[in-house]
Nucleic acid binder design. Structure first.
Lengths: 339, 339
DNA sequence: TCAAAAATTGAAATCGCTTTGAATATGGCT
DNA sequence: AGCCATATTCAAAGCGATTTCAATTTTTGA
């Protein structure tokens, strides 16, 4: 079922049919109706490749994912937010996975050169992100999920990691904790640096000295978190509170605490960052988990919106959003134990 | 940088350049070299839309994802397996997300009608899967990850869920367990039905009666598993062993066991199904987790291969793979306690 | 009623590639 | 040298849409 067939079937020219379907004004209302009806009846949909070639738009946005090592569950959540919005505009999401760093840049080059996508989404940037610089060099529009220190203007949406961690840390300090461990993301990633900034700021505001042994940087996995927490709990004096970078991390820390024979919420406190996974609810943990919360799915949906604006011509310099991070207190954070 | 530009730059016709790049035999070796060099030097890559229009191939495979509710972390793993292989063939992966069942079928129709993809991948089928039937009606090739009862031939790759659960259940029975709880996937999904079959077969082989109160069906989330395990542990006599459908489920069960003041591996045993997530390792749990194991990432990579074979003309009826499921015994499964 | 303006439709060019069928070079043999 | 087979190259026709520009019909107003 091609446009041509539909046009012949209707006894009209391709031009008119095309216009009728695309809502151009210069077509009689009666004709438009007739065309629309026939189109839906015959199940006509324009051939995507032809449409793209003719319009010059790829009708797709791209994401390049580095292995599953860092994205994992976050990615699915983000994608479902993004996808919901994009589907309404008939825009595809093209995902490419790569193993190494080098492959990654090559993948961006490939996508750009073959004009497979109109825009891209960049994740988990570093402070000086070469992928972002590359995309700007290649002149392909993108929205950054996070932030980076570029001299050039970048469209971004980020959450206030610094503020969130500062508040969480301050709260723990208020509760009397002095040895607060921070299980942070991979060194170099902007969000991890920002979180450390918030943590440090809170500590120094109360004159609490910083102990590097209490800070760990790694991917957010249950397993690594377990190991790091385990070894931190062997320190003397041991930490009385943990700031966990994600819910996976929290699960690992939780296990380490239990294994050490300690009780979460009394012997040791914890505040975890919650990206709001539907399958891992802080409210249903035991004890319920105090969190700094920001929905990654909503971020995905919003980035879709920003992407559309960007493609619609909105200047990059006007596309910046910093989302606040809520601090939700539940049972896992309590007063520091008295020794 | 279009083919035309490249051709002019080289003083050749588009025809020759195109042939040189696509490895056709009728082009002088010296010319081919010259073309290849210029192409890589000038960073030429064919425009994806034009190429697709000309060849009639979309150069992409599609997946439709229902919310994140059921896929979640499994999906990222699968994708990274799939993506690795597809990238080598320059085939895109187009993901579409949908919220409802209706939207889902519509999404398949849309993808098919607009010829956006050459083939699709179907996930978590039900015993009588209407999506599979639809795709066959639409005559679009697909590989099923799982199995379905269709009268028509379907290309599929599945793991031996029945065998895996039968062995796991038998093992627990050998250890003296008689009240074995099964936290299974959503009712109606083939894999869940298959697992139940294996569970039932093992029970009846030993003459152990089946208690419906010990079987739960739900999505594989930490939270739901926690609740179900919690209420099952209140039964008297209580279950002495759990079969957990996924590692997420296992974490929920684990929490319920701890909360009930019981010890995993002695008071209560557990064998969980492990899809092999890099960030949730059965070996690093505490106690280490006994599992039925099968890598979902490998499945993704293999399905990519099958998809390519399918597109290469291999008959659907020859594309069936049933992968064995390993039973890996660790600390979480021990002899039944004596009352 | 009729010319001019407005509304509606259509023919053909275009997007950037592949591929068919024809044209030109090159080489081998007698 | 001359002829035929073979090796290379090219011009032009698609692929299925959009869009420009021209043609036709309808409406409007004096």
């Amino acid at each position: 079922m091609r446009l041509k067939d539909l046009a012949e079937h209707l006894g009209l020219s391709q031009t008119t049919v095309s216009r009728a379907l695309n809502g151009y004004p210069e077509v009689k209302e009666a004709t438009r109706l007739r065309v629309a009806e026939a189109a839906s009846e015959m199940g006509y949909r324009p051939n995507a490749s032809a449409l793209r070639l003719a319009t010059g738009r790829a009708g797709a946005v791209g994401m390049v994912l580095r292995g599953a090592d860092e994205l994992g569950p976050h990615m699915s959540e983000f994608l479902s937010g993004l996808g919901g919005r994009m589907a309404t505009q008939d825009i595809d999401i093209v995902v490419t996975t790569v193993a190494s760093q080098q492959e990654e840049l090559a993948a961006y080059r490939r996508l750009a050169a073959s004009q497979r996508v109109d825009a891209m989404i960049l994740h988990s940037p570093t402070l000086n992100d070469e992928r972002a610089e590359l995309l700007m060099d290649l002149n392909i529009p993108f929205v950054l999920h996070g932030r980076t220190n570029s001299t050039r203007a970048v469209a971004w949406l980020d959450i206030d990691n610094t503020g969130g961690l500062e508040r969480a840390t301050s709260h723990l300090l208020d509760l009397g904790h002095r040895r607060i461990a921070l299980l942070n993301g991979v060194k170099g990633r902007t969000f991890a640096e920002h979180r450390e900034l918030g943590y440090m700021a809170a500590l120094s505001a109360r004159g609490v000295s910083f102990d590097p042994a209490l800070v760990g940087n790694s991917a957010f996995t249950d397993e690594v978190a377990f190991r790091m927490a385990q070894s931190m709990l062997e320190l003397r004096p041991r930490p009385t509170a943990f700031l966990a970078g994600s819910m996976m991390t929290a699960l690992g820390v939780f296990r380490a605490i239990r294994q050490a024979g300690l009780e979460l919420g009394t012997d040791v406190s914890m505040i975890a960052h919650d990206d709001v996974f539907p399958y891992l609810n802080a409210d249903n943990m035991y004890p319920t988990m105090s969190t700094t919360r920001s929905s990654i799915r909503q971020a995905g949906a919003r980035i879709a919106e920003l992407l559309l604006q960007l493609l619609g011509g909105k200047p990059v310099s006007e596309i910046h959003e910093l989302w606040p991070v809520e601090l939700v207190l539940r049972e896992s954070s309590g007063p520091a134990p008295l020794f």
